[in-house]
């Protein structure tokens, strides 16, 4: 494999990791409440600014910042669920969808008011910028951190949903709501846990995103959020494994699109992603790993 292709592959895996981290939350939440959380992408922004705020104090080590970002994301997710989703349960699905759209508007514009629309430079430790040589290619250390931490989080999540009582309850709730209630599963608490975990992942993606791309503003969450949804659709909405798979496929496809076509087409990058969405919906609406599911209010 030539250096160029290896480089592209690593770029794709890096981008795919970020999409996968966001997509996981989308899918977990969709799987349980059958609702697309529009504000999910904005948690990326919340995570990025939390990181920036904590890092600029210079008081905390990076592992503590990462932990606090996860906690902030979880708390934000829980708040969104309490304010805009739980009260709408039982209402038509569209109502919940509009409510999350409104939350997204509040977060984005609230961000603009509090933080201004000026992009800010993101500080990451110098060591992250150093280059690491892998075979013929050389990559930024931060890319490896992104890929590695995503894999770590995925493994932890897998252990959680397979091996713990709460994880089992989550899967049970996604599989059959009535039966889950009859088993005595506390539906409210389980939904809250799904929001907390999914949102923590998205906020953590914000930390990584800021570190990789160097600049953040209050609207950075929108496009990655929407793309992560596309990743979910590719993998099959509602399936966590599908979200991860879809994230990596989309990341690789996007990098290939930009890297392998003549440069005049690279401006069409985002159009390509969403055209993919419409194409996937047309050809295989259940995605790669999804299965047709019943409606749930």
């Amino acid at each position: 494999m030539s250096a160029y292709y290896l480089q592209q592959l690593l770029n794709g895996l890096m981008l795919g990791s970020l999409y996968a981290l966001i997509a996981i939350g989308f899918s977990m939440i969709y799987g349980i409440v059958r609702l697309i959380n529009f504000a999910h992408g904005d948690l990326l922004m919340v995570g990025a600014f939390t990181t920036l705020g904590l890092a600029s104090t210079g008081l905390l080590p990076w592992w503590a910042i990462a932990l606090l970002v996860l906690v902030t994301g979880a708390l934000s997710g829980i708040t969104i669920e309490r304010v805009a989703i739980r009260p709408m349960r039982g209402a038509p699905q569209v109502t919940g969808f509009i409510a999350t759209l409104a939350v997204s508007v509040v977060i984005e514009n609230g961000g603009l008011i509090l933080l201004s629309g000026q992009p800010r430079t993101f500080l990451f430790p110098e060591i992250m910028r150093s280059r690491v040589t892998i075979g013929p290619a050389s990559v930024a250390a931060v890319d490896l951190v992104i890929i590695g931490s995503t894999l770590l989080l995925c493994v932890l999540l897998l252990l959680f949903v397979r091996g713990t009582r709460m994880g089992r309850a989550m899967r049970a709730l996604a599989d059959n709501l009535l039966a889950a209630r009859l088993m005595g599963i506390d539906v409210d608490r389980t939904i809250m846990a799904a929001f907390a975990i999914g949102s923590a992942f998205a906020a953590f993606a914000g930390l990584l995103w800021g570190g990789r791309f160097g600049q953040i503003d209050p609207l950075i969450g929108f496009a990655p959020g929407l793309k992560a949804f596309v990743a979910c659709v590719i993998g099959g909405v509602g399936s966590i494994g599908g979200a991860v798979l879809g994230g990596y496929l989309l990341g690789l496809a996007e990098v290939m699109f930009v890297g392998m076509l003549p440069p005049i087409y690279s401006g069409y990058r985002d159009a390509f992603v969403f055209a993919t969405l419409i194409l996937v919906l047309l050809l295989m609406p259940n995605g790669l790993l999804g299965r047709p599911e019943e409606d749930r209010a």
Binding site: R165, R168, R171, L178, M183, G184
Partner: peptide, 26 residues
């Protein structure tokens, strides 16, 4: 007070063992 519902309502995508463990959820 535990119900075995009409139409069985199993967790179809989960394993037999997981279904049993969910029965003991409480």
């Amino acid at each position: 007070v535990v119900q075995c519902p009409e139409g069985r309502q199993l967790f179809a995508s989960l394993t037999v063992l997981e279904n049993l463990l969910l029965g003991a959820y409480r």
